[in-house]
Design a protein around this nucleic acid. Structure first.
Lengths: 240, 240
DNA sequence: GTTGTTAACTTGTATATACAAGTCGACTTG
DNA sequence: CAAGTCGACTTGTATATACAAGTTAACAAC
């Protein structure tokens, strides 16, 4: 359970939306009603509702109430900072992770720039292939600063690195920047993936930061063209 | 200026970050200091800071303060609901919009699904090419429900439809869902774009909603592979 | 010198109140 | 009947207070 009142209310309302107790198009109870239901203050309810709104689950309309959106209903992966294991569980497709490389390296010029490290620092390099429905679709190349991740094993990489980082090492993963673009496939891509006839791959560069804004991971995720899909939810900022 | 106190503080702090008065890595003044500077309450300051944090401009660290991130410094287009005109102005590259088609149509089966309309409703269809540095890079196919947009002209489409919708028609554009994937290019793509040797295009499907959660626009944006780039900022949700 | 303890700072959460502003239905008024 | 008004509801903004919890530097004790 959450220690936070507003987060536990967020979770409760979210699960009611996902279970269909609150259906798309429906109004959810008013803030006043929720205050009584959860025996809390209006500001606490509003924090929970604003989180739901930011994440695309509800739309708040002044004077009327909050209605459930269907935007988030069928679509994954939707924008967010989520591990492959969490994603695979949501999607429910049979998938497997194959650890192809796991070694400690010194960064080259490119990596020094991406991870903001010096030539002397030790870096974990992990290369994994994600097999989805029997096809080798995604090539993930992860780089971790050893300063933050002293130890890694093949077993951890095959299971879920994030679970290990957050639960065992107590790292507080906070935010990420992702860059998407398309690139010609390399020899490495062809070696590790089932590329069919495709000549390009979709590349996702992931820069992951901890709680204190320190960059601790750089990931390059290379997807076969035809299987790539990404969904984003955005709100317009009005400044008038 | 904004009528809202917290939005005008958000804007003021944002412009200080963008102008470099607050530089990446620097601490911004504490909430208490900002309360005195802006002569307001702490909750109002916190609303402004939380917005900056959500949008990737600062990181708040409990017990320490808020530091400016460099994540947003060089990267556009970053996730958000922004018109091509606004984007072009930010990027500063020479660009031009060519209106190739502008007509009123009845929706076919596919469009009926995308725009949630019946066969009897009138739909504006706008086809535009975005020329960047002299090359025809992006093909935008927009569809507007006539119920929301009674009138359109070539002139409006060449300038900025969004400016017209928001300023003239007073439509309140609120949020959007975007889907990204890669597709084989069509005859239409080849006809309108400078595609070089590329066999695929990046497709962005855009569903745009108004204030009251009604779907009013569907856009299909088709990008030449090599010029496509998208940046996303995401925060991890911790539920423990 | 090292360790531990304050004290003063920071941000995070929860609560209460007041009023503004948009929506909607019922009722009044012409 | 039509139009306008009013009251009861909704969400939005601004303010104040209290306490929790993390950080840091100064200081005291050993």
């Amino acid at each position: 359970m959450s220690e936070n009142k507003y987060l536990s209310i967020y979770n409760d309302l979210l699960s009611k939306i996902e279970k269909g107790i609150f259906k798309p198009g429906m109004k959810i109870p008013s803030e006043h009603q929720l205050v009584e239901q959860y025996e809390t203050s209006r500001e606490t309810i509003r924090k929970a509702l604003n989180l739901l709104s930011e994440h695309g689950y509800i739309q708040k309309i002044k004077g009327k109430g909050s209605i459930v959106l269907d935007v988030r209903k069928f679509d994954f992966p939707i924008s967010g900072l989520i591990s492959f294991k969490e994603l695979a569980q949501k999607l429910g497709k049979p998938s497997r992770t194959i650890v192809e490389q796991l070694e400690m390296i010194k960064p080259d010029e490119v990596l020094k720039k991406h991870l903001h490290v010096t030539a002397r620092e030790d870096i974990w390099k992990v290369v994994r292939v994600r097999e989805i429905e029997g096809e080798r679709i995604i090539l993930d190349k992860d780089f971790f600063n050893k300063k933050f991740v002293p130890f890694l094993s093949k077993d951890i990489c095959a299971r879920s690195i994030y679970e290990y980082l957050e639960k065992e090492l107590q790292l507080k993963i906070s935010f990420a920047k992702k860059e998407f673009f398309v690139e010609e496939c390399t020899e490495e891509d062809r070696m590790y993936l089932h590329l069919k006839q495709y000549t390009h791959v979709v590349v996702v560069r992931n820069y992951v930061y901890l709680d204190d804004a320190s960059l601790f991971q750089y990931t390059e995720s290379r997807h076969r063209l035809d299987k790539f899909r990404f969904v984003d939810f955005a709100r317009r900022i009005h400044l008038h």
